[in-house]
C-alpha cells in the first residue's frame, strides 16, 4: 500500500515520464540530452520550431551556454531535409559575427544525412531572406514560409561542429553534438505538420481560469 503522502511525487514522476515521451513524439521539437562532457556552448539542449506572427518559420536552437571567443572552427549548424539537404552554419563565437554559411546538396538514399564535405551548389534553391539572430544561449534561424513546399516531407536537426571553409567547399572535421542523436532515422514528416497547432479543450479551460 502506498502512503498518500508518497502518491503525489510518484504521480509527478509518472506524468513527467509520459510528458517527456510526448515531447519526443512531437515532430516540431527535438529535446536533446545534456552532455556534461562538452563545453556548454557546444552542448545542444533543444531545437524548436514556431510560426512567427509575420508567417515565418522559426527554428530556435538552444545550447547550455554561449561564448564570445574561442576556437574559430566551431559552428552551430542547422540541417534541413526538404527535397534536398540544406545546411546553415553560424560561428559559435559571438565575436566572429552573424554571417551565415549556406550549402545544399542532393538528398540521396544511403547517403549520410550530414555529408562530411559540402560544396556550394550552382543550382541554388536556397531560401531567400533567411534571417539569423543570436538569442540567449542559442540562435534563431528564420525562413519564409513561402520557401516551403507543403506537398513534400520535411526534416531538421541541429549540430555543433568543427568546420573549415576552403573556397566553395565546406569540410566538417568533427561533430561535437547532434540534437537528434540517438533518435535514429531522419525524423522526416509531412511539411504541413509544421503548421499544425494541437488543441486541447482542457488547456483552453485552464487558460481561462
Amino acid at each position: 500500500m502506498i502512503p498518500p503522502g508518497a502518491l503525489l511525487p510518484l504521480l509527478m514522476v509518472f506524468s513527467l515520464t509520459v510528458s517527456a515521451m510526448q515531447i519526443d513524439a512531437d515532430p516540431r521539437t527535438i529535446v536533446s540530452f545534456m552532455d556534461k562532457g562538452l563545453s556548454p556552448e557546444l552542448d545542444i539542449l533543444s531545437v524548436t520550431t514556431d510560426i512567427s506572427p509575420e508567417d515565418h518559420l522559426v527554428f530556435q536552437v538552444k545550447t547550455r551556454g554561449e561564448r564570445a571567443q574561442g576556437e574559430v572552427a566551431d559552428h552551430l549548424l542547422l540541417r534541413i531535409l526538404h527535397g534536398k539537404v540544406y545546411v546553415f552554419l553560424i560561428p559559435i563565437n559571438k565575436e566572429n559575427g552573424n554571417k551565415v554559411l549556406m550549402y545544399e546538396t542532393a538528398l540521396q538514399p544511403d547517403y549520410p544525412l550530414l555529408p562530411q564535405v559540402l560544396e556550394q551548389s550552382r543550382e541554388n534553391d536556397m531560401p531567400r531572406h533567411l534571417k539569423v539572430e543570436r538569442v540567449a544561449r542559442g540562435v534563431e534561424f528564420t525562413l519564409p514560409l513561402e520557401w516551403i513546399d507543403f506537398g513534400k516531407d520535411f526534416g531538421f536537426d541541429a549540430y555543433t561542429v568543427s568546420a573549415q571553409v576552403q573556397g566553395d567547399t565546406l569540410e566538417i572535421s568533427r561533430v561535437h553534438d547532434q540534437a537528434g542523436k540517438g533518435r535514429g532515422g531522419s525524423n522526416k514528416f509531412s511539411a504541413v505538420t509544421l503548421l499544425n497547432k494541437l488543441c486541447t479543450p482542457q488547456r483552453l479551460r485552464a487558460g481561462r481560469d
Binding site: M12, S15, L16, V18, S19, Q22, I23, D26, R28, T29, T48, T49, D50, I51, S52, P53, D55, L145, L194, L195, N196, K197, L198, C199, T200, Q202, R203, A206
Partner: peptide, 13 residues
C-alpha cells in the same frame, strides 16, 4: 499537467 505538456506551442498561419 499532461495536457499542458502535450500541447504544441506552434502559432497558426
Amino acid at each position: 499537467i499532461l495536457f499542458l505538456a502535450a500541447s504544441a506551442g506552434s502559432e497558426a498561419a
